[in-house]
Structure formats: structure tokens, C-alpha cells
Design a protein around this nucleic acid. Structure first.
Lengths: 173, 173
DNA sequence: CCCGACTTGTTCAAGTTTCAAGGAGCTGCC
DNA sequence: GGCAGCTCCTTGAAACTTGAACAAGTCGGG
């Protein structure tokens, strides 16, 4: 980008660059999402002792029936690889917030189960986290902007869904 | 969140939860930004051999006068800590894409300088990266949505700027 | 029943990020 | 001059993420 905009390189020649306006939008996007993620990560690290994604795992478990999910299912919900989840659950287990349980119907399977301690951490920290989100995002946007944001994000997410029409590849990647 | 919505806990009582609609928007946001970041990270790792943020460092350098920036300046542009940048530049240096130079006027200072090899990597991979961004984002949004996205992201970013009114703390954190 | 193909979850190694600490140089004030 | 308090950047260790490889279990066809 930038000073490469004028490159006469043939490979780039048939390539459509971003307009100035698109570039402005894209940089605003990167800037804002970076800052927001850092902000929430720090807020949760400070108040709950875990990064945002780990918090999200606990939330998913809290919402699940019997507060448990199969590893793969949880990985899909959180959009992370099974490998990453495995490590994450190991850490949360060490904290006593999650416990593993064998799946009776499939001996390969494992459930991640939210413990009472895990539930308690959520109960204690959820209000602060919601406040942080509200303060950083919703409080600053008009109702129309909120609506637009939701629509835009749904479109973008849909476009990147790994399980698009006909793609019956392994769920991620 | 979720099944905690009805918690009668006094600490949470004076707390405003997210409405269903807000929650829908927030989850769409998380979902989309996660997928997009992963997507671009993988695209760049595959085609350029580096994660998105490292690519961004090279772009910043390419745009700077004499293709060089002081470490702190570059860290600010990229919104990362100096420590992280230090490690990152060390890696890019190993790749031969960046080189360090002492600052003549301040002996503490270091310049990160984009090498010819670094510039070449950018030239070769920028088109593919731009395509990926366009395909995932701009091609899917109407002009109005693009405009709205830019405005929203500018608002959010502004709200999280570390250097807000009166906050003369160290630039980040 | 048995085999090949697939799924599930983990592990290992390599790479990245964070956090706290520290060395070195600058700056202003006495 | 000299010294306190800053800024600049790096370092090292711990935490986290990634991708590939793997053991174990399931499944369906022959």
C-alpha cells in the first residue's frame, strides 16, 4: 500500500487497489478493533485474571445445558482450534474454573464442565465486563449506528464462515 | 451473561445488562472480527510468511520518509508496546526485511529501516493482501455501509485513545 | 468381522506476546 | 558539575498460540 500505489509491476497491474476512502475506513477498522480488543483483554486480565477469549469460554459453558460442552463444540462456538482450546481448558482447569469429564457415549470425547468456582468468577466479573463493553461501544453509538454495525458484522461473518455452501471441509481451516 | 441475566445479586442489581439486541450486535462483532483477523493472519502467513501485525510494521516503514522510523514512533503507529515491537523487529531483522540503525542525535534511539528485501516482500504480497481485504469486507458492503463502518470505527477508536484529554500517562497502558 | 477412512482430543516444538525489570542516555534544576 | 527523574529500548521468563503429528475411538462397506 502507500507508496506502492503506483508500482507498474505487471502482477499488480491488473489489481484493484484500495481507494483513499477505503483505506481510511480499513485503517479506522484496524485501529478501533485493535484498541478495543486490547482494552477488554486488559480489563478482564485485571478483574478476572484471564484473557478475553478464556472468559468467552466460561460464558459459553455457562449458557450450555448442564454447563458443559464437548471440546469440539466449544471450539466451534469460540472459533478457535481444538489445539488452542485444549491448552486453554488445561489452564482453566488449573484455576479450578472448569473440569473435564469423559463422554459416556463416545470414548474419545471429553466434556468441559463449568465448576461452581467458574460460575462464581463469571457472576463476580460479568457486570464489570458488560460495563466496559457498553462504555467503549454502545454508549458512543447512535441507535442507527448500532443497528448498522450489527448488520455489517453479520455480513462480514457470513462471508467468512468456514461452512459455506458445499464446503464440507473440516469445520475450521 | 446468559443465564446470569436474572441474578438477583445486589452487586449486579444496579447494573445495566445488555439488551438482547445489544447482545446480538456484540456477538456479531466478536464473531466477525475474530474470523476476519484469523483469515488475514492465515492469508499473510501463507503468502508472506508473517502475521498480519508484522506486515503492518513493514507497511508503516514503507510509507515513512527514508523508509525508517524510530522504534517508539513505529510502536505507536502499530498500537503495540515497545517490548513487543522489539521482539518483532528482531524477528524481521532475522528475515532480512528490516535493519536497525542507531540514531545519531539520541544515543538511546534506534531506527527500524525497511531493507530492499523487505520492500520487495511487500511489493510481491500487497496485491494478494488487498484482494483478501476487499473480498472479505468491501465487496460485501454497500457504499452506505462502508461509510457507516468508517464512522463507527472512528468513534470507537477515539473513545479508546490512550492520549485523551488530560491523560498524560505513558502513551500506552 | 475387519479394514480403511475419518473424528476426537492431546501433545510437541516453534513462534509470539506479555509483564516486570533493567541499562543507558537525556534533561532540567540546584 | 551532578543528581533526580524521566525516556528509549532491550531482555528474560512465563503465558499463550500455532501447526503438524499422533494415539485412540468410531464408522461403514465388504
Amino acid at each position: 500500500m502507500g507508496d506502492m500505489n503506483t508500482a507498474p509491476d505487471p502482477a499488480a497491474a491488473r489489481h484493484r487497489w484500495l481507494t483513499d476512502e477505503e483505506q481510511r475506513i480499513w485503517r479506522a477498522y484496524l485501529h478501533a478493533t485493535t484498541l478495543l480488543e486490547d482494552h477488554l483483554d486488559r480489563q478482564l486480565q485485571r478483574d478476572a485474571g484471564m484473557p478475553h477469549i478464556y472468559y468467552g469460554l466460561l460464558v459459553s459453558l455457562a449458557e450450555a445445558p448442564r454447563r458443559r460442552l464437548r471440546m469440539t463444540e466449544l471450539a466451534m462456538k469460540a472459533k478457535i482450534t481444538r489445539s488452542r482450546l485444549s491448552h486453554a481448558i488445561a489452564r482453566l482447569e488449573k484455576n479450578g474454573w472448569v473440569r473435564r469429564e469423559d463422554c459416556p457415549s463416545d470414548k474419545r470425547g471429553q466434556f468441559a464442565v463449568l465448576t461452581d468456582a467458574g460460575h462464581e468468577v463469571l457472576r463476580r466479573t460479568a457486570p464489570g465486563h458488560v460495563s466496559a463493553v457498553r462504555q467503549a461501544l454502545f454508549d458512543r453509538l447512535s441507535p442507527e449506528q448500532q443497528k448498522a454495525l450489527g448488520e455489517i458484522m453479520e455480513i462480514v461473518a457470513e462471508g467468512l464462515q468456514p461452512n459455506e455452501a458445499g464446503a464440507d471441509l473440516p469445520w475450521l481451516r
